[in-house]
């Protein structure tokens, strides 16, 4: 009998061991978090390294900005992590170590604020508006927002659950038109992908996304876009262990030089 019982005992022990390890691991994170204030340096000259969580649409600009910052402040390292704003908030609330968070909308920043994870009042550093993206040849001859509602146009937009989709929805409401998309994607990248590959005749994306796509897509401005201006807030995360460097990086984005990089990429100023 004992022979039959022993394996199960072993399994239980192993399982308990894993659960125990998991418990230990989360405890360590807590300890590190509590230690952070005493660990932070009091020198005013930024040094060391920070991790910046930034919305996917900021990839090009923030990469440039981080390089410029590192060049201007030798001895600093800016690590960048890009993902959808909602994903980043999920990661941060789950304990991901980050010093700066730049969101593509105020809604996700509020979520982080509700979680008690922001150190300072967020600063709005950029705006973004929607534009119609069409393949370079513009096969369906789209020229205005109204054209998108034409039958036979293969339109791809963002799903209302994601920021660009929410913006699309408010424009639809304020302009009083009904769009019949062939697909509602969960990210701007997927919308752009369908436009640049020629699968879709048109898509609604941010100005900055069209700039990034280069020759493969053309942007068409439309006046109704003013109904949904997306604001990008940035802040230091409360668990940051290098608040000096984090603050310095945020300043470099809001100053004139930083703003120029953003406007060159198509962002508006708040």
């Amino acid at each position: 009998m004992s022979i039959h019982h022993r394996p199960w005992a072993t399994i239980l022990t192993a399982t308990a061991l894993i659960l125990g390890l998991a418990g230990c691991a989360s405890g360590t994170v807590d300890n590190a978090g509590n230690q952070s204030p005493s660990g932070s340096s009091t020198t005013s000259e930024p040094s060391g390294e920070i991790t910046v969580f930034a919305a996917a649409s900021l990839k090009t600009t923030f990469t440039t900005l981080a390089e410029k910052f590192e060049a201007a402040h030798p001895g600093t390292t800016i690590k960048l992590s890009f993902a959808g704003s909602a994903d980043l908030v999920t990661q941060l609330t789950a304990g991901a170590p980050a010093d700066v968070f730049a969101s593509a909308d105020t809604k996700n920043m509020s979520k982080l604020q509700d979680a008690g994870l922001i150190a300072d009042t967020p600063i709005d550093f950029a705006t973004n508006t929607l534009e119609i993206a069409v393949p370079a040849s513009n096969p369906a001859a789209v020229n205005s927002l109204a054209d998108l509602a034409e039958p036979g146009i293969k339109l791809v937009i963002c799903a209302p659950q994601v920021p660009c989709g929410a913006a699309t929805k408010s424009i639809e409401e304020s302009a009083g038109i009904t769009l019949a998309p062939v697909s509602e994607e969960s990210s701007v990248t997927d919308v752009m992908g369908k436009v640049t590959s020629g699968e879709a005749d048109a898509g609604l994306v941010y100005v900055t996304d069209i700039k990034t796509a280069g020759d493969k897509a053309k942007g068409i401005k439309f006046p109704e876009s003013s109904a949904a201006v997306n604001t990008y807030p940035i802040t230091t995360v409360s668990t940051s262990k290098n608040k000096v460097l984090a603050d310095a990086f945020i300043t470099s984005i809001t100053d004139t030089e930083g703003q120029k990089v953003l406007t060159d990429a198509g962002f508006g100023t708040p």
Binding site: R6, P7, W8, T10, I11, L12, T13, A14, T15
Partner: peptide
């Protein structure tokens, strides 16, 4: 017997 322990980890 130790196989059961590793199998337990895997499971």
């Amino acid at each position: 017997p130790w196989i059961y322990a590793v199998a337990g980890v895997g499971a």
